[in-house]
Design a protein around this nucleic acid. Structure first.
Lengths: 212, 212
DNA sequence: GTATTACGCTACGAGCCGTAGCGAAAGCAC
DNA sequence: GTGCTTTCGCTACGGCTCGTAGCGTAATAC
């Protein structure tokens, strides 16, 4: 591990404590004020740093909030529950729990909205938040195939498309449920969701699961 | 149409032309500037009205953009295509087409983000945009039951939950695909989506393609 | 005609933005 | 230790947008 001066740089190193303080202050400000009323001056005051320090490290409000929110999603893990349905329900519940926090809600959606007009920002969101969680889908599918719950997908292109689709489907559903419908993504809802995902609409009224 | 003076109000009536001009100018400003750089002064100039006129009709940026975006989604219709899969694909493609427009993307997501801290705004979004489209799910399910494609749902509470779930699932998936993954919600993607919805994950590889 | 309301215009204080400039502080190389 | 380099805190600034107040004028109902 290279120390705080990675590449022979001389001079006073940047305070790592300031970084964490700023990101924490950003999340606190998101909770108290929301996206629109959040000002960088206020964040700097909360973090105990000067406003200029903040501008030296982040280009603006968008990038700062992306980094502050990204840390929230790093704790996501795929529980090994023994069945595909339980795996899905477990990880979706984790995701819903994170997304229920006010700093995640207002922050994430706001930067996504901004990213529609800023390709660099969208890439930052994808690499630091979204793409890192796609591993959960891949891992879940691999486990399900090993258990015999899902047939192996021979076509690689089709498999990739399916992974992307599942990811958009699950993440989008939780987001829409939480933010737009303003409903709780609780265990009952997650159970219904996993049932539809596994058996389809026709299977919702019937007895679920019973994998071949 | 009732004239511009609905209930015995005296005095000069509000210009209906100004309303449409303002909403159109708002959408144009969303395309040119996006949400964050959109200013009410600019919208007023584009619409050819005074800034004070704008403030007399809308409380702020949020409410204005909700109304401006809501008009985009009124054209949604459920095509009678003869099968549930085709119905789903048709209406999802319509939704995706609307959401691909820049004024819909940036405007809708931004107000949704704001609504996480403003209950009145979220209600406005739900009543003027979201809830009105839930009829599509209800109508599609009714048609599918009539065709025998879906079993009737005896439990009313369960049926309501399923409708909400399907709505969150479909709308959320299209939004996530379009905005976060930055992929095209084209015919191929929609076909995959409807297949997963109808047959579940296990069915995706077993009965592929179904080439038209 | 008269009352009432909407409209266009101007002007204003307030707040935030993003940057510049300065002196001081904190490490690194020697 | 002595320098060198970079970061830090602080202050100040022009510029922009906000949302409102005030005024005279325009348009309609009675």
């Amino acid at each position: 591990m290279q120390s705080s001066t990675p590449a022979g740089r001389a001079g006073r190193p940047r305070s790592a404590a300031a970084d964490t303080a700023i990101l924490a202050a950003t999340r606190a400000a998101l909770v108290d004020l929301g996206w629109s009323k959040l000002t960088l001056g206020d964040v700097a005051t909360r973090a105990g740093v000067a406003k200029t320090t903040l501008y030296r490290r982040w280009a603006g409000k968008n990038e700062l909030v992306v980094d502050a929110v990204a840390e929230l999603f790093d704790e996501l893990e795929l529980p090994d529950s023994g069945s595909l349905a339980a795996d899905i329900e477990g990880v979706v519940l984790q995701f819903a729990t994170i997304l229920a926090r006010p700093e995640a809600k207002s922050g994430l959606m706001a930067v996504v909205a901004e990213s529609t007009r800023d390709d660099a920002l969208r890439e930052r969101i994808r690499t630091s938040i979204v793409e890192r969680q796609k591993r959960l889908v891949l891992e879940g599918r691999a486990r399900a195939e090993a258990r015999g719950e899902l047939p192996p997908e021979p076509d690689a292109a089709q498999a990739g498309r399916t992974v992307d689709l599942i990811f958009d489907l699950v993440a989008g559903a939780v987001v829409h449920r939480t933010l737009v419908s303003a409903g709780a993504a609780d265990e009952e809802w997650v159970r219904d969701l996993s049932r539809v995902l596994l058996t389809g609409l026709a299977g919702t009224a019937q007895e679920p699961a019973t994998p071949t």
